[in-house]
Amino acid sequence: MSADDRYRPGYEVVAEQLLAYIAEHDLRPGDRLPTEKGLAEELGTTRNVTREAVKVLAAIGRLTVRKGAGIFVASVANPADEQLVHYQPTDMEHVLMLLDYRRLIEGETARRASELATPVQVRAIRGHADQSGVAARAGDASGFAAADAAFHDAVSEAARNVFLQSGVTNARRFAGQSDVLLFHGDVPGSLEAAAAQHIAIAEAIAGGDPDRAAVLMTEHVDTTRHQFERRIRDRVFNLPGRSHPPEPPSQPAKEARA
């Protein structure tokens, strides 16, 4: 355990170690892991902390616990997704690759939605964007999260391509794993800024402006990348005993969840 790990919840550290264990042993969906006791011994931790880590990983869909049978690497719906079974939600390199993928796929999804969305789909996109604004102004993080997910799902549906839609859904699922393990579901930035971005994207789609829709969606995902990097920096330098780095020159901030 590193010095930094001493200031983190034990289950979070062990959850990372379990994912690393799966990758190091090249375990695949459906493969069985050792028992809680066996994992605790392998990782040099307690059984209670291991149990909590297993619960967290089961909750985000990385492990499956079958009573009387054991702990397994979670199955995937699509065999092609097996390549993603070793995704590390707390590894900066992995998360940045995921955000780069989202930048590409969601920008194109918004572009196509602006060209292909039906009036009913446009109303749905606008409605979810407006709902995110209502939740943001009320400080309702859970309500915002629901509207945010519905907004992105509606945009991907309007693109009329099941492969794009599946890609957006999977990417956001993996992003949610990082949120849980790194930030415990905390709001990473300004909800109102995110809602304003949703509304601008919705208007570009409604106006049939594919270039603007793509640019706005790409900026929306870029915002997530910037706030993620900032949260990681804050996480590191806010640890006890750490000195803070000099603040960068101030500039207009656009933090928001994509």
Results as ranks from 00 to 15, higher is better:
1 M>G: 12
2 S>H: 07
3 A>E: 15
3 A>G: 15
5 D>N: 14
14 V>E: 03
15 A>Y: 06
18 L>W: 09
23 A>C: 05
31 D>A: 06
35 T>S: 15
43 L>C: 08
43 L>Y: 03
44 G>E: 09
46 T>E: 10
55 K>F: 08
58 A>D: 15
67 K>P: 10
69 A>K: 14
70 G>I: 08
72 F>L: 12
78 N>C: 08
80 A>K: 07
82 E>L: 04
85 V>R: 14
86 H>G: 10
90 T>K: 11
91 D>R: 11
91 D>T: 05
91 D>W: 06
92 M>K: 13
92 M>Q: 14
94 H>M: 08
98 L>I: 07
102 R>G: 02
103 R>W: 14
104 L>V: 14
108 E>Q: 11
110 A>Y: 00
113 A>C: 02
114 S>T: 06
114 S>N: 04
118 T>C: 05
121 Q>S: 05
124 A>D: 10
127 G>Q: 14
128 H>V: 06
132 S>E: 09
133 G>Y: 04
135 A>R: 10
136 A>E: 05
145 A>S: 12
161 N>T: 00
165 Q>G: 03
166 S>Y: 10
167 G>S: 15
167 G>K: 10
168 V>H: 08
172 R>T: 04
178 S>D: 07
179 D>H: 13
180 V>C: 07
181 L>A: 04
181 L>H: 05
186 D>S: 12
187 V>I: 12
189 G>Y: 00
190 S>Q: 04
192 E>R: 06
193 A>F: 12
194 A>Y: 00
202 A>R: 01
205 I>Q: 04
205 I>F: 00
208 G>P: 00
212 R>D: 12
212 R>K: 12
220 H>K: 03
223 T>W: 05
226 H>A: 15
231 R>M: 12
231 R>W: 07
235 R>S: 14
246 P>H: 11
249 P>N: 03
